[in-house]
Nucleic acid binder design. Structure first.
Lengths: 156, 156
DNA sequence: TTGTAAATGCGAATGATTCGCATTTAGAAA
DNA sequence: TTTCTAAATGCGAATCATTCGCATTTACAA
């Protein structure tokens, strides 16, 4: 599914984010942000390329944008153990993590606050680190659908 | 640093792991396991290739081995936000996680048990998942060395 | 409206990863 | 020990994602 060329609404979230980080508001950047704003789970750079029409943004440009967004902290890398890196918007107001089915790849989000305690303790113990600003947490298991499926197939 | 061709000691940890998973004991597999056994922090597939002499294992073979070890659960993917996927031995007896400096890439391990509580709570809440067997946790911050370095350079 | 640094598009280059197939080999069976 | 065979490997070519260089376009400050 290719996203249609978005009109560059200067009051949109996308434009606000770009302004905030000192980026010029261009169609390619707008398209990448718009796409990431709409997804529920992280996606790969290839999925980003496939989802954005070449008329809207060239692939090389998309890769450059991903790189610069990463450095600016607008997006972050996520590891769902799918064999590649996925990306998601780094909304700093939320503290969500991922629950991944190692059998079918299903992803579910969950909220988590407990980690504050862990971070404090780790900071107390470490001799090399001064501060911690971000954390990632992924849980890997089997979803109910796959559990049911495997029961039928266990007699191999 | 290329690892010397290891003699295939049938009583070694490497051989035990291979036997356990029904893999034939070959020099390439032995070399990959031996390398991963010796590292403190996760490394990329390219680092694995660079560290193993071509006489000991061909690159294509190394990639095939990484793939099969992943599927067997002998190794796991780790995301240190270095732009690529790293790998480490999946010793199931340990529960270690990674503390990463986003400025210089320094990695430190830390032990963690608190997560059991979190997992129980998440399992209670989820409607889609039946079980959780593994978890990953990475903390991202700034190491003391970089903090000191940045203080000197902040006046740009 | 204009000027300019920044951003983009394009095509080529690169480099990691995969594939097909011929050859070798680990380990089971005789 | 020797034999046999599926499994594993090596090699070179092919593929595919990602990057690069450079000419052109464009956002936006003045």
């Amino acid at each position: 599914m290719k996203s249609a060329s978005p009109l560059l609404d200067m009051d949109s979230i996308e434009a606000q984010i770009l302004n905030l980080h000192g980026f010029k508001i261009t169609q390619p950047r707008f398209a990448v942000l718009s796409l990431l704003k709409g997804i529920v789970h992280p996606i790969s750079s290839q999925e980003i390329c496939d989802s954005i029409d070449n008329q809207v943004a060239n692939q090389a440009t998309i890769y450059r944008i991903i790189q610069s967004f990463l450095e600016a902290g607008i997006i972050r890398e996520v590891n769902l153990r799918h064999g590649h890196i996925d990306y998601e918007l780094a909304r700093d107001e939320d503290d969500h993590h991922h629950l991944v089915c190692v059998s079918c790849g299903l992803v579910e989000n969950f909220e988590e606050c407990e980690t504050e305690k862990i971070i404090k303790r780790v900071l107390k113990q470490t001799k090399k680190f001064a501060s911690i600003h971000e954390h990632a947490m992924e849980l890997f298991g089997i979803c109910k659908a796959c559990t049911k499926k495997n029961k039928k197939t266990t007699h191999r």
